[in-house]
Design a protein around this nucleic acid. Structure first.
Length: 269
DNA sequence: GATCAGGTTTGCA
DNA sequence: TGCAAACCTGAT
């Protein structure tokens, strides 16, 4: 099926923007995304046209929301004042990045894993976890593993987790999984909480500090006002904003501005 | 072999 | 309240 997208949309930049770790570009030039039990191949054809291998229904109800295609990122870019020269450059350079609407549980576990790991190491660990505990699915003749639900992860011992190269994060994951199962926590039910309450609850999990909680809120709960500050953004603030937090200017869209800066500082030159 | 990678926790001023 | 040091592991 052919679909048309008129707004900012760049698949390579989306998968390189550090918000997701399972999507890949496959050798034939298509991009492969996984969400829940769904698999999608998508290929750019030019002029905003894309070939996707899903039904019209699935596009409308699964993938269009996943890519956040009901929002205008072009309008968000245009809202940046010329006076913010660094962000203006960053957003221009990063045009096409969108904040995917990913699963909260997957984001929580993934960003606990992410601490002090390189992006390739995160990808590898997450994939091992999926193969070890996820469900084997098939769609369009291709097999893939889902990201394991809490009940599936609960079958793993701490030693099983360590075998996924999780190192000292293994007990964090182990305890988080145990708590979610014991207290029957459904993260998707936290969708209605205000940002501050959501943050407080995320911070209660072991191995979750401010940075991981913000990433989970931004990428798993689509709280686009949350801007995670990592070593790269710290560098931006230090070197380009004289140590002053630049996100106070963008209370509604700080998370998106953060993505532009993050992608820019990591890829320029 | 040392250092670093999208941090968090712990312990001690 | 603030600041190091320690922590698994793979890559450079």
């Amino acid at each position: 099926m052919i679909i048309t997208i008129h707004d900012d949309f760049n698949l390579q930049r989306i998968i390189d923007s550090g918000q997701c770790f399972r999507p890949v570009k496959i050798p034939d030039g298509r991009y492969r995304f996984i969400t829940g039990k769904h698999l999608l191949h998508i290929q750019e054809l030019g002029d905003g046209r894309y070939e996707v291998d899903c039904s019209r229904w699935n596009w409308k109800h699964t993938w269009k929301p996943y890519f956040d295609l009901n929002a205008s990122y072009a309008a968000i870019r245009r809202s940046i004042p010329d006076s913010d020269t660094y962000l203006t450059w960053a957003a221009e350079y990063s045009q096409g990045i969108r904040i995917l609407r990913q699963d909260p549980w997957e984001m929580l576990i993934t960003f606990i894993i992410s601490q002090r790991k390189s992006i390739p190491a995160i990808r590898s660990a997450v994939e091992m976890l999926c193969e070890k505990a996820g469900t084997l699915c098939e769609e369009g003749g291709e097999n893939f593993y889902t990201f394991p639900r809490p009940g599936e992860l609960a079958r793993l011992s701490e030693e099983d987790l360590r075998e996924c190269s999780l190192g000292y994060r293994a007990p964090y994951i182990y305890q988080t999984v145990k708590r979610v199962c014991r207290e029957k926590i459904h993260l998707s039910q936290w969708n209605s909480l205000p940002d501050e309450t959501l943050m407080e609850k995320l911070l209660e999990f072991p191995g979750v500090g401010i940075k991981v909680a913000n990433c989970t809120a931004l990428f798993g709960f689509h709280r686009i006002s949350r801007a995670p500050i990592d070593v790269w953004i710290e560098r931006v603030i230090r070197e380009h904003y004289g140590g002053r937090n630049p996100f106070v200017l963008y209370p509604e869209t700080a998370g998106i501005m953060q993505q532009y800066m993050f992608y820019y500082i990591r890829n320029e030159r």
